[in-house]
Amino acid sequence: MGVRAGVVVCVTSFLLGSLFTHWIADSLTLWKSPVTDEHLWTAATYYSILAKAPTEALWFLGAVVTTGAITILWSLRDGEAGNIMFDGGSIFCLPAYVMIAPVDPPSSGVFAKFDTLPMHQPQDPFPRSLRTITLELASNNLICSVALTGVLALQAGRFWAESSDAEDDEFEDNETEGAPSRAKTPDPRSVEKISPSKS
């Protein structure tokens, strides 16, 4: 695996890890039935904590995404079939994270909705204005996770394809090197038997 493919895999793994940390909140709104007000308050409280995180942390996350996208585009410039097939597929998956995930500063975007979460008790009714946003945010995280898993699958396919090509090239080289030695070996059936001359 080349350096560029390694960078893409590391960036994708980092982003997947950051999404998996949201499972604390998303599992309550995606995989619980029915979704109660207590579940929604727990998820909203979690995202309220993230909304108060330093802006630099979110800008760092955006820089990581940009690094992965630039690396894939750089690899596409080579014009090789493997790059176009696997990196070309990856470049369609990574923008799903860029467009859907809330990587913008907390002063704007989705996180701003949770920045001023009202005081509440778990049994209090959940605000309807936050219900849709909370459910959509969990769905977006799931979509991004699937997209980034697709990037890892494509890069694994690229590694497998490059390994197969390398093995084929090595086999052909060995065949080429062994051909002259076999040509020098006389075929016993082609050697004429010379009978001893009678004296």
Rank of each mutant, 00 (worst) to 15 (best):
F114I: 05
D124P: 03
K193Q: 12
S163T: 12
M99I: 14
A101S: 12
D165N: 08
E177K: 06
D173P: 03
A138I: 03
N140D: 13
L137F: 15
I194D: 03
P196I: 03
E170W: 09
P196F: 02
P118K: 09
R182W: 06
F171Q: 13
S129T: 15
D124E: 07
E172P: 01
S163Y: 05
F92I: 13
R131P: 01
T185K: 11
A166M: 10
P105H: 02
K113T: 04
R182Y: 10
P188L: 02
A166S: 11
L130V: 02
Y97T: 04
L154R: 09
T176R: 08
E192A: 11
G157V: 05
S181K: 10
Q123I: 04
I133F: 06
P186C: 03
S163H: 07
M119Q: 09
Q121R: 11
K193W: 09
S190N: 10
L152T: 00
N140H: 08
V110P: 02
T132K: 12
D165A: 15
G157H: 07
S163R: 14
P125A: 13
L135E: 14
P106K: 03
D165Q: 14
P122R: 12
P102L: 05
E136N: 15
E192Q: 08
D115G: 08
V103E: 00
T149Y: 07
Q121G: 03
S107Q: 10
